[in-house]
Structures are given as C-alpha cells and as structure tokens.
Amino acid sequence: MTQQPPEYPQYPTQPPQPSAPPQYPQSAEPPPYPQAPQYPAQTPPAPPPYPQAAQAPQYPMAPPPAPSAPPTPPDPAAHPHHISTDHGRVHIRRDQRRTDATAVGSLLLHLPNFLCSLFVVGLVSLFFGGFGIVVVLAWLASGALVFHRPTESAVARRLLGLRYPTPQERAKLEPVWREVTARAGIEARNYELWVEDSDSLNAVAAAGHIIGVTRFAMNELPNGELAAVMAHELGHHVGGHAWAGLLGHWYAQPGRIAWRVLKAFSGFVFHVSRAFGCIGVAVIVMVIGSIALATISSLYGLPLLVLAMPYALAAVGRRSELRADEHAAELGFAPMLAAVLDKLHQQEQRTEAALTAANGGVKLEESALSKLLSSHPDHYTRLHHLQPYLRQPPY
C-alpha cells in the first residue's frame, strides 16, 4: 500500500483583523491663566474753553452761473434772401436763346473792326501766293470755334482763369443753378459751371456755354443772392450778349494786332528821327500823315470809325448789363440782386478809399472819357432800373 502524504494545515480565507489601537490616557486641560488686575480709568481733564470770535454775517450767495451753451452757427435758411431749391415740375421753353437788340448792336459795331481785320488778313495772304484765298477762308471759318466746347474750355481756363468746380462746390452750385434755370425754362445741362479762385464778388458769362462765379460769391452769398448773380449771367447767354461779344472780339484781333505793330513801329521811327533834329521829325510826321490820309480817303473814312468804336461798344455793353439785370428781376430775384449791387458798391468804395489813402488823401477823380469807356453802369443807374421790379410782390 502506498502511504498517504501528510495533510498540511489549512489557513483561513479571511486575513485576521488588526486589533484596535490601545487607548492612551487623555491629558487634563491646562489651568486658566490669571487675568491682569483692573486699574481705575482716569479721564483727562477737558481743556478750558477759548473765547470764540464773533461769527461773520452770512450774505446770500449768488446762484452759480448756468453753463453756457456752445454758439450755434447761423442757419442759412433763416436769411431773408434764402430760397428753396426743391423745385418740382419744370417747364422747358421751346425758344432757349434769342438775339436781342444789344447783341445785334454789338455785331454791327464790330463790323468796322471786322473789315479792318479782313484787310490785314488779305495783305498777309499775299505772301502765300495761290493759297492766299485759303488763308482768308480759313480765317472766316475760324469764328465757329466760338461755339466749340473744347475751345471754350481753353478760353475759360487760359484767358479767364476759371477752373472746374470740386465735387463739394458742385453740390453747392447745382441746386441753385437748377432753381434759376427752372424759373427761366432753360435746360440746365446746356451750360457749364466754372469757378474763379478770387476773393472779389464777381461772375462771368463766357463764350457760348460757360457760367463762372468767384469763390467769394459761392461761399459768402446766401443762395438767393447767388441765384441772382447766376440769373444775371444767364441773361447774357439768353440774350446773345456773350457769343456776340466774343465773336466780334475774335474777328477784331487781326486789326488790333496790326494796330499795335504800327504803333510800336511809329514810336521807334519817331525816336530815331529825333537824332536828326526837327527836320527828321517833320519828315516822319509828313510821311505817316500822308499814309494815314491815303488810307482814310481810299476806305471812305472807315478807319475813323474804328477810333470811335470803343466808346460805342462800351455804351452797348452798359445796355446789355441792364438787360441782364432785368432778366434776373423778371425771374423774381430783384431784391437779391439789389443786395448784391449794394455789396458791389461797398467793395468799390473800399477800393477808392484805399487808392485815396495811397495818394496822400487826395481823391482820384475819374475823367469823362474813362466813364464813357466803362462797360458797366454806375450803381444808382442799375438800382433805378430795378425799382419797378422791387415794388412787385415776391416770386
């Protein structure tokens, strides 16, 4: 028989639980510390009262000033010459332009200048031989450039010192211009607005399609007075004054150039003749006088009319200014135009005062001939012609 192996001791499946920790004796609480002894409180004696000064009388205090509000800029609409530019329906006239008596008179008065210029151009064309007739015809056709828009722009920019308005300036000018043209029944797009960089009160109607105003008039005038200025210049265009004057001036240029050349040459010859004494001067005077007499007799005295033309043209120009004033007044701008004329008169008086001060306090008197050569009527004449319109009810 086989022997059974010895049995091994069996261990419990759960490990034995540790025994509870031993209980240590609790220490007794420490005895309380003895408190500090209480001493009686001693209050410091109060200081003796000092004599009080007599109380100053109380005066009523002024209320604090109210905070001042910032100054408000003046409202342009509150000006008596402010107009509304919110125009509704516009009636456009069929007849946009006409040629009034002053325009016809200007053309007729430029006729002697035109004939003298034609004579000068004919003499110059002789140097071109067979092509001379082409030179004459080209000069006659050149008058159409007055109505050529690029040529007008060149004239406005180079000769008159005008420029195109900026977007801000255009936003200010165009509503006023639309109101003026709406009252006149004129197509506003037929004309161009230009600006002159000047601090004077002025405006111009140039060529056939240009209305120019100064920077001062655009920025300083109420919109009603600015409209009156524009309506005045529109009157020059509607009446034909602008294109008639420019056309006559253009065709008179060859004659004027020839006159300046002859004048300079005569002055030079006269100074040279003085070196030969009185005899040389007498000979030169006789020669020039003979040429002048022959010219006058051969042209039936026409050159003598040229000497009187500046005075006649100035008279027609003054009449055209009155017609333009009437045009602005008929559109309802008579009070505004009268205010503008007053400002122009004050500006002229300041200029005269400055010239008088520069002359040592002696006033410069205008001669009668210079008054006849003035292109604008005097202040009182223009106001006199506006009186019938000033008595009418507002537009």
Rank of each mutant, 00 (worst) to 15 (best):
Q3T: 15
P5G: 08
E7S: 11
E7C: 03
Y8C: 01
P9M: 04
Q10W: 07
P12D: 12
P15M: 10
Q17F: 01
S19D: 06
A20T: 04
A20N: 03
P22F: 10
Q23M: 15
P34Q: 15
P37M: 12
Q38M: 14
P40N: 05
Q42Y: 10
T43I: 14
P44S: 10
P49G: 12
Y50H: 10
Y50T: 15
P57Y: 00
A66H: 11
A69K: 05
P80R: 14
H91G: 05
I92G: 00
R93V: 14
D95L: 13
Q96W: 05
Q96T: 08
T99R: 08
T99K: 08
L107W: 05
L107H: 00
C116T: 12
V120H: 08
V120E: 05
V120K: 03
V121S: 01
L123A: 06
S125E: 05
F127R: 05
G129I: 09
F131P: 00
V134A: 10
A138L: 15
A141Q: 00
G143Q: 08
L145Y: 05
L145P: 00
L145V: 02
F147L: 07
H148V: 08
P150M: 09
P150W: 07
T151A: 14
T151K: 01
E152P: 00
E169S: 07
R178F: 07
R178W: 04
E179V: 15
G185N: 04
S198N: 13
D199T: 13
L201P: 04
N202D: 13
F216R: 13
N219C: 04
N219K: 14
N223R: 13
G224D: 01
G224E: 08
M230H: 02
A231E: 11
A231V: 06
E233G: 06
E233P: 08
G235I: 12
H236E: 02
G240H: 08
L246W: 00
L247N: 01
L247G: 00
L247T: 01
G248Y: 04
Q253C: 01
Q253F: 06
G255T: 06
I257F: 12
K263S: 14
S266H: 14
G277M: 11
I279C: 07
V281F: 04
A282L: 09
V285F: 05
M286C: 09
L299G: 03
L302W: 06
L305D: 06
L305C: 05
L305F: 09
L307R: 01
A308R: 08
A315H: 10
A315T: 10
R318P: 02
R319N: 09
S320D: 04
S320Y: 01
R323Q: 13
A324N: 01
D325H: 12
H327C: 01
A334Q: 04
M336C: 03
A338V: 08
L344V: 08
H345E: 14
H345N: 12
Q346T: 07
E352M: 11
L355S: 11
A357F: 02
L373E: 06
T381I: 09
R382W: 10
L383A: 07
L383C: 12
H384T: 13
P388N: 07
L390Y: 11
L390R: 13
Q392G: 03
P393I: 15
P393G: 15
